[in-house]
Design a protein around this nucleic acid. Structure first.
Lengths: 229, 229
DNA sequence: TGTCCATCTCTTGTATACAGAGTGGGACAG
DNA sequence: CTGTCCCACTCTGTATACAAGAGATGGACA
């Protein structure tokens, strides 16, 4: 783990913000597993600052849903319960479907072209079997559509769900043929949005995310639920 | 304003939590208008505690979306911009519609009967023109359906949106005939849920909330946007 | 030997003190 | 008279010190 915060991008951010970003990344990248205790004192030592900004960072993470906290009992990285995770995917599919529906109606020509380019870029990564690169573009793809909804509260909800699911979502693309199917599903979404067909976009996106639930369920059944709690 | 926190219900709550609840109530009840500056020092004096828990409370409010904050620039009660508020209602109608759709599929017989009783109770308040009572039952009605979705993350999203819109929503039922129409629309939702018809429930609920947007837009046009920013 | 109680320690919650950034006002120059 | 620059004050961000609650450990008694 980076025991120090990069000296770059320190513009306008408080220490608390920097710590929050660092811990967020640790959670996303799996360096901090769900269930891990977040001790204020040791975090303070790790970042060479006092406990005050650490506490603020933890509070922010609590409200982002990444961390759970009970008074006088400390904070732990949120151990998503299985049924709750399935519920979140369920909501996510609807929210993203909604984003796609709005995007089909509201995206500007420039936004549509940018989306198309993103999709084409992911095509290259798919053929080259570059999993990490595909995963990165995949995220950009979904974010582009969320932004295309031109509805900020909706984007915030989507981002929040995405953030909470991110630690688990990365397992999905390990499924052998998944990356190809994912690309094809994206294609359907892109076509519907470019054609300006809201309902088709909604259906395609909703289906795309719903499939991820199935993949995830399969992953869980293989794992036997271990390591997830 | 209550300059002191009630000695009751102090179980398991930190000072920060108490302050947060107090400020939340002030915002909901309009005692703290959007745009009002939240000065840490004066709040600390008002509650007779130090700035530390005040800061924590403000942070929590920031993440609930009720307060905005920029580094080194303090916190103000979130001044909802008009277009953003419309966007929130837009999302709210979809979220509540979604809740209704799930509720139609998942509500137990007990939950359905409880919902029916709530609706009948609101009928009495409508006929007696008891606006406040109707407003209270109305909230219970929506919460019952949200709970009926049996999807916790979805409920949290709905609650969050409701909380952020609450300071403004109360104007809506002032519209003369609104209360009757509202009751009729609720009736449609109840019928669909009791019949176990997800799509009808979704449509009825979505329409019910969408109408609120129109009422709200009308209210705003009368106000000329003053006092809302 | 097992159980219960007390104390001790560890961690969180709160207070207070200090540092640094922003803002506003006043003074001086044009 | 007006504009600009500098100084001071105010408020936020951070550090540190203190208090209090929860859990653990050890001893004593049954």
């Amino acid at each position: 783990m980076s025991d120090r915060i990069a000296d770059s991008d320190k513009k306008g951010l408080t220490r608390a913000d920097e710590v929050r970003l660092a811990i967020e990344e640790d959670i996303f990248l799996g360096r901090l597993r769900p269930g891990t205790r977040l001790d204020e004192e040791s975090l303070a030592q790790r970042f060479n600052i006092s406990r005050t900004p650490i506490r603020e960072a933890i509070l922010q993470l609590v409200h982002a849903g990444l961390v759970e906290k009970q008074p006088r009992h400390g904070a732990v990285v949120a151990p998503l319960k299985l049924h709750r995770m399935v519920q979140m995917f369920e909501v996510m599919s609807e929210i993203e479907g909604l984003c796609a529906r709005f995007a089909a109606r509201r995206m500007s020509e420039e936004e549509k072209q940018a989306l198309k380019r993103l999709h084409e870029a992911s095509n290259a990564h798919m053929k080259a079997r570059e999993l990490d690169a595909y995963y990165a573009v995949n995220r950009e793809f979904h974010e582009a559509i969320q932004a295309g909804s031109h509805n900020e509260p909706l984007q915030e909800i989507a981002r929040g769900l995405f953030a909470r699911l991110a630690p688990y979502r990365r397992y999905q693309l390990n499924h052998p043929s998944r990356i190809n199917d994912s690309f094809d599903e994206h294609g359907g979404v892109v076509d519907a949005i470019l054609a300006g067909d809201p309902e088709a976009a909604y259906t395609a996106m909703r289906r795309h995310v719903t499939i991820q639930i199935d993949i995830f369920a399969e992953f869980v059944s293989i794992m036997g639920g271990n390591g997830i709690q």
